[in-house]
Amino acid sequence: MLRRGFLSVRTGLTDDDVRKSAAALAVRALELPELAHARSVAAYVSVGSEPGTLALLDALHARGVRVLLPVLLPDNELDWGPYEGAGSLATVRHGTRMALLEPVGDRLGPEAVSGADVVLLPGLAVDGRGMRLGRGGGSYDRVLARLERSGADPALVVLLYDTEVVERVPAEAHDRPVHAVVTPSGVRRFR
């Protein structure tokens, strides 16, 4: 029910709301020291009324940052491919689920995320402990577990709307906190 509530609020946003928030989100995110010094960033392409990421992806790419984007596999695992600008994306429909914009070209394998300096995570909410509420598919839980197993320690940053930073979200034993949340109005750090 919690997920449905956040998704319902997002559905009520206008295209103009989403566009303005995306521009502000990119400005805030680009101010992060972690992104200023990153050589490689694992990110994602927003869909629908998610906080917009394309302006941020383009800015990182223009800086010469290697941007990795996920490719959803049939088992909900994520492979990764390089982002080379808007022309390097294709719409891919995954069965009856939503269509996603994914990178075309070379696949780098699920382990490629372990080389990222920063991992930008989607979510529906984050709480005061830095615990992230995702959509429930488990893809990013697997990514976070993979990072932990490999010993990689990238900055974990979730991109949200201001109203999605809440007091508490449910957490399970496998959940891992993020280091920061970026919203259109600012940044909040958790450790």
Rank of each mutant, 00 (worst) to 15 (best):
L144D: 00
L144Y: 00
Y161T: 08
G138V: 00
R142W: 08
A145E: 08
D162T: 11
L133F: 04
R146S: 12
G138T: 05
V143S: 09
L159K: 04
S150L: 13
L156D: 00
G134V: 13
S139G: 15
E167C: 09
E167H: 14
G136R: 10
V166Y: 12
R149G: 00
S139L: 02
S139P: 02
A145V: 00
G134R: 12
G137V: 03
D141Y: 10
E148F: 11
R132S: 06
G130C: 10
V165Q: 05
G138Y: 09
S150E: 12
R149F: 03
L159D: 02
G138D: 01
Y140H: 13
A155N: 03
P154M: 03
L133G: 10
V166M: 14
L156I: 05
P154T: 04
G138C: 07
G136W: 04
R132L: 11
S139K: 05
R132E: 00
R132C: 07
G130W: 08
S139F: 00
L160D: 11
G138F: 05
T163N: 02
S150T: 14
L144F: 01
V158Y: 08
V165D: 11
R142I: 04
S139I: 02
R146E: 03
T163V: 15
V165G: 06
M131H: 13
L160F: 12
D141M: 09
G134F: 14
A152C: 06
G130T: 08
D153H: 15
G137P: 01
T163Q: 13
V143T: 12
S139E: 02
R149H: 08
R142P: 01
V157K: 05
L147W: 02
M131V: 12
E148K: 15
G138M: 09
Y161C: 08
T163I: 13
R168F: 09
D141N: 09
L159W: 02
R149T: 09
R149M: 07
G136E: 01
Y161W: 11
L159H: 03
G130Q: 14
P154R: 02
L156W: 01
M131K: 04
E164F: 07
L133V: 06
V143R: 07
P154E: 01
T163M: 10
T163D: 14
P154S: 03
V158H: 13
R132T: 02
L160C: 13
L159I: 03
V157T: 11
R142D: 02
G137M: 02
R146Y: 08
R149Y: 00
R168V: 13
R168C: 06
V158A: 12
R142H: 12
